[in-house]
């Protein structure tokens, strides 16, 4: 994490969510929003859809969040550039949301689906999650991409699918812990909500600095 855990945020915390296409980033956000709101933490979202505004429209229509609190940023076919080398338009969208909705506690910035090498600029986010899934193969943690190693929180999603796609969940957990050292990891099933509370607890402690 960029900043020391010294004082509470006075402006919205900015949390990045990255990961490969189809790993479950939007589904994770759909579960995080009500869980965070239930704790009194208001949420806004910036999406980086690659080709369409589908993720943004999906969240707007979900009924989980005021549609005005969802912004889509086009990335010119460069999802990694928009969160790393040139995050200026994502910063602009987050600044707009912070100004328009001062009661928001967390602004989630969802990267467009990318590869294992994507990372977030620490000028854009305070904290970032990297989402992979069991259907992508149980060798993904062992491949040690920067997203796997450097993210503040690794999420292994679709744990229910592991036996169906021949992925060894214990191996994924073991390999992830080996390459990440003491950085946290959470196993989730975003379809049922399993593991979501653990993520929110982590965000509360590490991002919002609630005990």
């Amino acid at each position: 994490m960029k900043s020391e855990k010294i004082f509470k945020h006075t402006s919205p915390a900015r949390v990045g969510i990255g990961g490969p296409v189809g790993s479950g980033k939007t589904a994770l956000i759909e579960k995080l929003i009500p869980t965070l709101e239930a704790r009194g933490i208001e949420v806004a979202v910036v999406t980086n859809d690659l080709v369409t505004k589908e993720d943004a429209e999906r969240l707007k229509r979900s009924g989980l969040i005021d549609p005005d609190r969802v912004r889509a940023v086009e990335t010119g076919a460069c999802p990694h550039t928009a969160i790393r080398e040139d995050p200026t338009l994502n910063i602009q969208a987050a600044d707009d949301l912070a100004a328009e909705f001062p009661s928001v506690g967390i602004i989630i910035i969802e990267s467009g689906g990318d590869n294992l090498a994507s990372t977030f600029s620490l000028d854009l986010v305070d904290y970032w999650l990297f989402v992979i899934d069991t259907a992508g193969g149980d060798d993904i943690p062992r491949k040690k991409g920067p997203g796997i190693i450097r993210s503040d929180l690794l999420v292994i999603n679709k744990i229910d699918l592991a036996p169906l796609v021949g992925s060894d969940l214990e191996l994924m957990e073991k390999d992830a812990n080996e390459v990440r050292g003491d950085r946290p990891m959470v196993m989730t099933n975003c379809a049922t909500g399993e593991g979501i509370v653990a993520i929110v607890n982590q965000l509360s402690r590490d991002v919002l600095f609630d005990a």
Partner: peptide
């Protein structure tokens, strides 16, 4: 183009 100015998002 390494200088960040959002140019990558416009055609």
């Amino acid at each position: 183009s390494f200088f960040p100015s959002g140019a990558v998002s416009f055609s």
